[in-house]
């Protein structure tokens, strides 16, 4: 065989072997009941962060927060309730949003409505920098190549099971040796970076215990600052609110619902009258507390902190109605 033919044969054979191995790997996991899934990361967040300043600011609704709002808010439901508006979720699972709010305040191109889903605990100094690495990534590392890379990755994640990090060959090898199959998630990341949860697939009792124990331990490890200190430390976020509102934007702090032991722990550590109720005065932003709105307080919270995917549209429509009544959003009629 000629050298040229031999070299081409090697490459073709390699592609065939790799293709067959990948097809077999994909087929195996599909036969085990796994489906393609989108995975969140800082590049995907950055894509959405970028979009926030590209849309019409007069009809721009941006959501910052952590998992509670990420599981509750539906951009589709919002946009159908508010025709012509664009909704974007910058919520980050497990990360309180102070750094995101301050970042948007520093961006002169942002002048939309910013809904900040947070509780009094999330505004304490312990948690101020949680989302800062995401903001830093957007400003320092996110560029043309990462934008394209993330779009390609999204296209693959939507089509192939094996693109998910849980199906990494080495992880599966150690998982197999330990008798641990890939986890089956009850949550699903959607194209708009919101999350839909199906609590019928979840160990609800286990989750309730997990949240209560984790929260109790965290309150011991990071106790609530004295109300005076807590309020003093709101100065920078107050400045962020002022900057956004001075440009014509609006900022609303939303206290998402929690229930049962979760709500008891929150109330014991951050009594509403000494913390949350001082937030509006300290920052100049409007506040919405779930307990003041029966349509939010009445939502079922299977794990005491998050709502089921089937309630997302209802939650979002209720939220829109509350914000319209508060004058934050115009009446869509």
């Amino acid at each position: 065989m000629q050298a040229t033919h031999r070299a081409i044969s090697v490459i073709v054979l390699a592609l065939l072997v790799a293709g067959a191995a990948l097809a077999g790997w994909e087929w195996f996991w599909r036969t085990q009941g796994y489906e393609p899934a989108l995975y969140d990361d800082r590049d995907l967040w950055s894509l959405h962060r970028e979009r926030v300043t590209e849309v019409d600011q007069a009809r721009n609704f941006t959501v910052a927060g952590a998992s509670r709002i990420q599981l509750a808010f539906s951009t589709d439901a919002f946009e159908s309730s508010m025709p012509g508006w664009t909704a974007t979720s910058l919520a980050i699972n497990g990360h309180y949003p102070t750094a995101v709010v301050e970042d948007l305040a520093e961006d002169d191109d942002f002048a939309g409505v910013l809904l900040v889903a947070v509780d009094a605990r999330g505004l304490a100094h312990w948690y101020r920098d949680m989302s800062e690495p995401w903001v830093r990534h957007y400003h320092r590392d996110f560029g043309p190549q990462r934008r394209i890379e993330r779009q390609l990755l999204t296209a693959l994640q939507n089509r192939l099971v094996i693109v998910g990090s849980e199906f990494n060959l080495v992880r599966r090898l150690t998982g197999w040796l330990d008798g641990r199959p890939p986890p089956r998630h009850y949550t699903r990341l959607l194209h708009d970076r919101t999350i839909s949860a199906d609590y019928q697939q979840a160990d609800v009792e286990g989750l309730r215990r997990h949240f209560a124990q984790g929260l109790a331990a965290d309150y011991e490890r990071r106790p609530a600052p004295a109300p005076g200190r807590w309020r003093a430390e709101l100065e920078s976020i107050g400045e962020a609110v002022s900057a956004i509102q001075a440009r014509g934007g609006k900022v609303v702090f939303l206290r998402m619902p929690t229930s049962d032991r979760h709500w008891e722990l929150d109330s014991e550590n951050y009594p509403r009258d000494r913390y949350w109720n001082r937030l509006s005065e300290a920052t100049g932003a409007r506040t919405v507390h779930f307990a003041d709105h029966p349509e939010l307080a009445g939502l079922e919270l299977p794990d005491t902190s998050h709502i089921d995917g089937r309630d997302r549209a209802a939650f979002t429509r209720s939220l829109v109605a509350i914000l319209v009544r508060a004058g934050v959003l115009p009446d869509a009629e």
Binding site: S9, A14, L15, V17, A18, A21, W25, V163, N168
Partner: peptide, 15 residues
């Protein structure tokens, strides 16, 4: 060809 193919498959199954 086989070795290169297997290494490539390992790379592509290591997200």
């Amino acid at each position: 060809g086989v070795v290169m193919g297997l290494l490539l498959a390992a790379v592509l199954t290591s997200p």
